[in-house]
Design a protein around this nucleic acid. Structure first.
Lengths: 199, 199
DNA sequence: CCCAATAAGTGCAATGACTACGCTTTTGTA
DNA sequence: TACAAAAGCGTAGTCATTGCACTTATTGGG
């Protein structure tokens, strides 16, 4: 019995189909623009039926983003397991910048810049990416509240969670994200320190 | 030439049609739920064609919200013409609470509670309402920057604009919006004061 | 090695929001 | 009155997305 990679032919083909779709989609979108490409075009290019496409991806926008499943767990961990002496806003700033840097590793690929531009210039994709993060607001708020010993529905904890997640997209469109993040999070930092000293 | 109300029969009928549509839509949505009603149903109930419906409203969601045109102007004015001694975050908190109170005036109408619930429980409507506000983020950021003499693209001004607008929806889902607003804006207040004392 | 369960993939038809188009009716105005 | 603009209409289309019934391939067991 194989311990690593219990990958039968079935799962391999499935992954392959999925990859074909994602590749075809990205190429077409970059070439013609998101709105100028129909879901039918993508399916044809990947040589599968439209029905199959929707068995692999929940919607047209999802074709562009590979599964970022444990986003929530990482976000919560960034707060819970932050090094001693680092405030929650600082920890969140670091985490968001780190995730962005992880993406930028592919920056060697000249497609990457185009990819980023595609996402930022297409409202449907921008919104989708945004929601990938804000989706976890409640979980983040809860983690923060537990960390500082506040009730689960504490408003300032919810506010910090919301603002930090919003800061991400705010900062991303800036030429120098690091500097922008410093400024945006400085605001949160000071505001947070005022009511939750030492966190 | 009539100065006030240059209202000919034409414009009156137009407004009437629009109103019929809005009324029919609200009644149907409240009765069956937003997703269970098609635009065809609304058009039929108002006794107009679907094409006509879309000449009056930009989309299905817009049927629910009457034109809030000068939202942006009011927002900018709240910052620019705030009474002396009141900080920008405070002014924004007041303005947002005021606008909410203005809506709640209709609270005598028992439909109003249902209306609020409808909007909050229907993702499409919640998002639409949210975007009605966040749409003006750039204008608000610019107004703030000019008020404090910062460059138009100053990050902390943009951040304050974004956070304040987000605070609105954050606070709205709370049982006591006023208290929630106090907490959320306290965070912004202190953070903002740290870098822009006296504003 | 064969069989039955399972899962991937297919094609087709339908829904529901929205648009384009070409047409008729109404209304404001010269 | 005559004409242009505006309001409305119906049809037919696009596009994403879903349900359904069907074929094909893979797998695990007997």
């Amino acid at each position: 019995m194989r311990v690593t990679e219990p990958t039968g032919r079935r799962e391999r083909k499935k992954a392959q189909t999925r990859q074909s779709l994602a590749d075809a989609a990205l190429e077409l979108f970059l070439d013609r623009g998101y709105d100028q490409v129909g879901v039918k075009d993508v399916a044809d290019a990947a040589d599968v039926s439209v029905t199959t496409l929707f068995k692999h991806f929940s919607g047209k926008e999802a074709l562009v983003f590979d599964q970022d499943d444990d986003l929530e767990a990482e976000l919560v961990a960034a707060v819970r397991e932050r090094p001693p002496g680092r405030s929650i806003p600082q920890a969140l700033r670091e985490h968001l910048l780190l995730k962005q840097a992880q993406l930028a590793i592919h920056a060697t690929d000249p497609r990457f810049a185009d990819f980023t531009r595609l996402v930022e210039e297409t409202p449907a994709l921008r919104d989708y990416a945004h929601r990938m993060w804000t989706r976890h607001e409640a979980a983040l708020a809860k983690a923060i509240a537990e960390t500082v010993g506040a009730p689960d529905d504490d408003v300032s904890c919810a506010a910090l969670a919301r603002f930090a997640l919003e800061a991400r997209s705010l900062v991303l469109r800036h030429a120098d994200p690091r500097r922008a993040a410093d400024e945006a999070f400085a605001l949160l930092e000071h505001g947070w320190a005022a009511s939750h000293p030492g966190n």
